[in-house]
Design a protein around this nucleic acid. Sequence first.
DNA 1: TCCTCCTACGTCAACGTTGACGTAACCGGC
DNA 2: GCCGGTTACGTCAACGTTGACGTAGGAGGA
Lengths: 331, 331
Amino acid sequence: MRDVAALAKVSTKTVSRVINGLPGAGQEVVDRVRAAARTLGYRPNLAASGLRRSDKRSATIGVLFEDLSNPFDSALLRAVEDRARQGGVLVLAGSSEDDRALQGELLGSLAARRVDGVVVMAAGGHQDALQQERERGTPMVLVDRPPTFGGTDCVTTTNRDSSREAVLQLAALGHRDIAFLGDRRTLWTSQERYTGYLEGLAQAGLTLREELVRTDLHGADLAETATTALLDLDKPPTALFTAQNLVTVGSMRVLRARGLQRSVALIGFDDFPLADMLEPGITVVRQDVPGIGRKAAELIFARIDGDTSPPVHAVVPASLVRRGSGEISPH
Amino acid sequence: MRDVAALAKVSTKTVSRVINGLPGAGQEVVDRVRAAARTLGYRPNLAASGLRRSDKRSATIGVLFEDLSNPFDSALLRAVEDRARQGGVLVLAGSSEDDRALQGELLGSLAARRVDGVVVMAAGGHQDALQQERERGTPMVLVDRPPTFGGTDCVTTTNRDSSREAVLQLAALGHRDIAFLGDRRTLWTSQERYTGYLEGLAQAGLTLREELVRTDLHGADLAETATTALLDLDKPPTALFTAQNLVTVGSMRVLRARGLQRSVALIGFDDFPLADMLEPGITVVRQDVPGIGRKAAELIFARIDGDTSPPVHAVVPASLVRRGSGEISPH
DNA sequence: TCCTCCTACGTCAACGTTGACGTAACCGGC
DNA sequence: GCCGGTTACGTCAACGTTGACGTAGGAGGA
């Protein structure tokens, strides 16, 4: 900046004015400064700028999801990024692996970089690190899972209602033995979906068969094992409700391996690519992922801009997409 | 920091020493400073630190891919992120939409934040903005597509060789009318894969039928249209080589709609989730995405650490995954 | 004609941190 | 008892930028 000022024969302050488009610089000077900046390849240093500026903005937000290579997470990231771009804001992205220690560490790294706000998919268990960061004043929005502490915005989907709806549809087809296969019980979404399952059974007048409930299935492999065990029961389920996309994939594999994909009904929570191309197509509860991302971005930027209205828990509706696997009758 | 110093009754310099774990601070003082920092909730400001430090590191790298919600891109991001984490480096991620103007803008934003280096999936066409940035000294690694300028590392896969291999396999099964369906011709990968296709035909002693070549298919919809047109030819192809994953999906849809998925052979470039669960499974050329990401990360961090050896063009081998659709004989 | 106001700059200090360098106290050796 | 060396601090300025404020010159009004 000093070099630019010297070349344009003005003070650094005037360069600053020109770069930021502030008034108080004549047209001739503006042109000289612009030319000098171009010839020297000058780039403003946002870090130094943010250090001095009054608003202390870094024009950067943090995004901390479970696994950025998961389609759900990356679609969410993309939606947040699109909204951020409109404000000239860049996104620092990280994967927490659903590990509290790692999440806390990454959160510290983001704080050290003075991000203007964070969008977090909270790791299961205690949210102490999140709460601390929030209490230090960092604008924060949780996605997919609500906070266990107060004063923080959050965006989730209709986990319970949509799960109930899925189970009711199965029951309406005549299924009386509907299994539940879920992800880790520490996850709020798993709990909600399980509650929806219970509500659905109750509402359909069915009694819960404990042995048809399998949880803590983290990943497709565990889901395969659990599905195999369920099908080997003396009185196996005639329908499966798989409460997470990797679980759905695991169950599907087993059904296909046994040639049961047209006789055992299946509804999964979370859509996945090509679910419509399988035979039969897989009926799923589809979350409005871009909608969730947009909403989260909207909330975080409002908070960054000083919105102090009471915290919001936004619920973005999911919908049941019927493709065949969930429309199979028993026997 | 001043507050911490005051509370611990030391100078800010000593606080700096304690925070950075530098020698020259007694045990008692270290404990006092740590306690003070904790009670005040002190967080070091990395921006200010980087401003003053001699190495000028921001401990942040930029990643500029085409679309972060694409599974290929997000898997790549994840691999880079994993490597970055080991060095305490965070990742600023952006989607360029394969738009040069947007890519240039994002590149400028990254530069303003003084990222230590960038990993870029170059947008098609001129790479002026990239070259400029590179010439300003920013460490840079291109992935998936090589630079059109010199002095820059790059990681790609065996586009040409693997495409040739795919075509040769189809020819070996007796196919003589093998169609090529490709993404935008401005993309280097498309060109390479097309060249591989031509080499494969030549090596198998087949003559090119121009009307079996369809390019500029950006997205599954265009691929569907093109596939439909191909199948409606008087002498339709008996095998398809689809040179990008969305193109593969589009072609698959049409084959299934016409009930041809077991009679027309199909090999796609790029694997995709559930390709193995379809009937028949889809034979694909699978890139080693984590391998590409790891290599790119390794290169960028080496350059950041001052490696000045000649630029490298690393080629990570892809492999043909046989699942059925590419093993269908003609008629 | 004189005073006021505005425009177009410049000067200085400060943002939070660390490199360079200074200094007081202590230690060991002759 | 003196000297050189080491340890444990502190002081000061600077990184690149901008807010607060100062000032010179010209325009405009009474």
